[in-house]
Design a protein around this nucleic acid. Structure first.
Lengths: 140, 140
DNA sequence: TTCTTGACTTAGACATTGTCCAATGTAGGA
DNA sequence: TCCTACATTGGACAATGTCTAAGTCAAGAA
């Protein structure tokens, strides 16, 4: 993740202990933490870090395009550091587990011109839902 | 909308003034109100209706499959009565306007088998984002 | 029609998630 | 090392949604 920190510093990002810890927490391939989870994990390494700072830092990472904001359930947003590989999400309707998935083709092309109503369409998010193997096995 | 009310009564839904008003507010083709908006509009006709009842009723309509819950922005959920026609959403990133749109093909088929990781995938939501004609004209 | 009863509604407390602000601290350049 | 603009903090506040206990009422029964 020092890649990320280097890149950010190059963009004039001031590097503080708090920001470093947040970036470290978000290091990983299939990470989808809520802000609260990030705060708890960050506080494990830097106990005095405040919620406001975590929210600020996450917001900046999103603006900088280093992290994607995902809201799959209308509850807390989740933060996905896998921003440099185009992907979609597969969510378990029962336990909420999230997986990154890759689809055939570009979903943008599936929206016909007349269905764009003059919008400059620039982005598309696709969320698949279903029951994960874990939940379908242990039928509650 | 008496269609809807009839259908619901047929399913043993107890019909009250409050539920009737909520259903009436949701009548329409391109309606995407938040719970609060539904409450405000319903209160216009039935001033003493409570927030809790609106939330309860919306939740029931969703369970019954008569209304779809849409969360496009991580803020308040919106309620879309257009549940019997498969469609997706096109959202203005600036003003938040929502349009119902129809895509080519079934987005479910774009997810290859090996990318399903054993999930029983049953649902997919696609959200397009861009700038609407209104917002791109009046560049702020 | 009137009665009865279980389901519905209400008000407001509470929970969760996120935002804002004034005071304080500090990274990094000079 | 010193400065200063930017970052952090804690706590109040805001927005959205959930829960509960007590009162109310729709709809079937008689």
């Amino acid at each position: 993740m020092s890649d990320l920190l280097e890149r950010l510093r190059g963009r004039g990002w001031r590097l503080t202990a708090q920001r470093r810890v947040v970036a470290e927490v978000l290091d990983g391939d299939h990470v989808h933490y809520t802000a609260d989870e990030v705060h708890a994990l960050a506080a494990g390494r830097l106990p005095e870090i405040s919620r406001a700072t975590v929210y600020n830092t996450l917001g900046e990472l999103v603006s900088l395009g280093e992290v994607i904001e995902v809201s799959t359930d209308g509850r807390a947003k989740r933060y996905d550091p896998n921003a440099h590989h185009d992907h979609q999400h597969l969510v378990c309707s029962q336990c909420g587990t999230i997986r990154d998935v890759h689809v055939h083709g570009d979903p943008l092309t599936a929206l016909p011109e007349p269905e764009r109503y003059g919008f400059q369409v620039s982005e598309v998010t696709v969320t698949y839902r279903g029951i994960c193997p874990n939940c379908s096995g242990t039928s509650s």
